[in-house]
């Protein structure tokens, strides 16, 4: 079974924001709501590195753990999704999330929080696949079309990788081995924990 993951190769990310607009393009999320962002460390000085971050679709997701109405679920592929019909917009998940992934569109004149919105790994939500209703609430469902998230597919330098952990680990590993470094910056273990050795990661032995 596929386990869907993102990994951003910091040796390649050039902070071009292609992933950000690819996401806007595919899901037409409103101004001010950003499912994906690029974060830069040591901006403007040697050691500058950028990574693209969105919902990491955690194995043990803190958002799921704290949600008072239990609107989160996880698909067979390990994608963390939620039901907007159930969401009450309380913002608990935002405080729980280590990555700041949950977003809250402004609702009404008093700046009340709307229902939570976040990266769906381009796989929609609990509505009929590729239906108008699904798009309206969650955006496109590329996974159901046999495609991967738009952000990674369009990444300018192929820094942001998406897909089955086994497949993308192999791609990432090839690069790390070829250049002889890079893992320590924002490698698999930084993203998902566990052993720091690529060989210990899914697909890493192959």
């Amino acid at each position: 079974m596929a386990r869907m993951k993102f990994i951003c190769d910091a040796e390649r990310c050039i902070e071009c924001n292609g992933c950000v607009t690819a996401c806007k393009n595919e899901h037409e999320v409103p101004w001010g709501v950003n499912r994906r962002r690029v974060v830069t460390m040591n901006d403007g000085v040697p050691g500058e590195r950028s990574i693209s971050v969105a919902c990491m679709h955690c194995s043990d997701a803190p958002c799921m753990a704290v949600c008072p109405v239990d609107c989160f679920y996880k698909t067979d592929e390990g994608v963390v999704l939620h039901d907007k019909d159930l969401c009450i917009g309380c913002g608990y998940c935002f405080y729980a999330c280590p990555f700041g992934a949950p977003q809250f569109p402004q609702a009404g004149a008093f700046g009340l929080r709307g229902k939570m919105d976040k990266c769906t790994y381009c796989s929609g939500g609990p509505e009929e696949n590729n239906s108008a209703e699904e798009f309206r609430k969650y955006g496109r469902n590329r996974l159901a079309e046999g495609k991967l998230p738009a952000c990674a597919e369009m990444c300018s330098t192929k820094a942001l990788l998406a897909g089955d952990a086994e497949v993308i680990t192999k791609i990432y590993k090839t690069r790390v081995v070829t250049r002889g470094k890079g893992e320590e910056i924002w490698g698999w273990s930084m993203a998902y924990g566990g052993s720091g050795k690529l060989a210990d990661q899914p697909g890493g032995r192959a």
Partner: peptide
């Protein structure tokens, strides 16, 4: 409120 994708739905 809080939905994405509006019109192209």
């Amino acid at each position: 409120l809080g939905f994405v994708g509006e019109a192209t739905a």
